[in-house]
Amino acid sequence: MTKTVEFYFDLGSPATYLAYTQLPKICAETQSELTYIPMLLGGVFKATGNASPAMIPAKGRYMFQDLDRFAKRYGVPLRINPHFPINTLMLMRAVTGIQLHQPQRFHDFIDCLFKALWVEGRNLNEPAAVAAVLTEHGYDPQEILALTNDESVKAALKENTETAIRRGVFGAPSMFIGNQLFFGQDRLDFVAEALRQS
């Protein structure tokens, strides 16, 4: 029976970006499936009383240094976005809309946004910057904006977020194998280990 990793993610988390760069390889090596589940990290924080480590200056400085160490270990580019934190409500609605209505473009869509945020350091708090990134990658910004205003898309993202909270998610990235939760990109070795177990 093929195992599945459910990957609860929000684009605004640099740790989630690092997990995103590694999970496909881990799943390929373990012949497992990877399921992407967009959620709204701000909603999770509000419901659980959690907050970004970056809100505590000393912890934030350490976290960014640690993420840089992991990026070097993984051999992937990482630039801490100078505009962090990013309000991801519209972005995550767009991601959800693409997943629902244009699933064949989903991987390219999240890839261009993750890279815009965590490689190029773009200010995706600004609608004009988002539109520029989308246009560069062959998307119609007006079409994407329409998706973010679609009630079914809003409802799907809300449901994903509420489901994550019910399952015990308190931050991102969060990964489930069955009912077992793994939190943080620094726990990917445990994810791989669980997938290898028969």
Rank of each mutant, 00 (worst) to 15 (best):
Arg79Phe: 13
Leu124Thr: 12
Tyr74Ile: 06
Phe182Trp: 10
Leu147Gly: 03
Phe7Gln: 13
Glu6Ala: 04
Val191Gln: 09
Gly75Leu: 09
Phe109Asn: 09
Ala146Arg: 11
Leu40Thr: 02
Met1Asn: 05
Leu147Lys: 04
Glu6Pro: 00
Arg122Lys: 12
Leu18Asp: 00
Ala129Glu: 10
Gly75Ser: 13
Leu157Thr: 02
Phe114Leu: 13
Met1Gly: 08
Leu11Pro: 13
Ala172Thr: 14
Asn125Arg: 05
Ala132Pro: 00
Lys72Val: 11
Gln99Arg: 14
Met90Tyr: 04
Ile177His: 13
Gln22Leu: 06
Asn123Ala: 04
Leu147Tyr: 06
Phe183Met: 13
Leu147Gln: 07
Gly42Pro: 00
Gly184Lys: 11
Phe170Glu: 03
Arg105Trp: 14
Phe84Ile: 06
Ala156Pro: 09
Arg73Glu: 08
Val5Leu: 14
Gly138Met: 11
Asp68His: 10
Glu136Lys: 01
Ala164Leu: 15
His107Cys: 10
Leu67Tyr: 07
Tyr74Pro: 03
Ser52Ile: 04
Leu78Thr: 06
Ala146Leu: 07
Ser198Leu: 12
Arg167Ser: 02
Ser32Gln: 12
Asn50Val: 01
Phe7Glu: 15
Gly178Tyr: 10
Leu78Glu: 12
Val76Gln: 05
Ile177Leu: 12
Thr21Tyr: 09
Glu151Gln: 07
Arg69Thr: 12
Gly12Lys: 04
Val95Tyr: 12
Ala194Pro: 12
Ala94Asn: 12
Gln180Gly: 02
Phe7Cys: 07
Ile98Cys: 13
Gln185Pro: 10
Phe9Ile: 10
Val169Ser: 05
Thr2Ser: 15
Asn179Leu: 10
Ala94Ile: 11
Ala28Ile: 04
Gly42Val: 01
Thr16Val: 15
Pro85Gly: 07
Met63Val: 05
Ile177Ala: 01
Ser174Arg: 03
His101Phe: 14
Glu151Thr: 09
Ala164Val: 12
Thr161Cys: 03
Pro24Phe: 01
Leu113Met: 11
Pro57Ser: 00
Gln65Tyr: 05
Thr30Phe: 05
Gly171Lys: 04
Cys112Arg: 14
Asn179Gln: 15
Thr2Trp: 13
Tyr36Arg: 00
Thr161Ser: 11
Leu181Gly: 10
Leu195Phe: 09
Asn87Thr: 08
Ile37Met: 07
Ala116Pro: 04
Arg93Phe: 05
Leu100Asn: 07
Pro14Trp: 11
Tyr62Gln: 10
Tyr74Lys: 00
Val153Leu: 03
Lys115Glu: 15
Arg187Thr: 13
Leu124His: 07
Met63Asn: 03
Ser32Asp: 14
Val119His: 10
Leu67Ser: 05
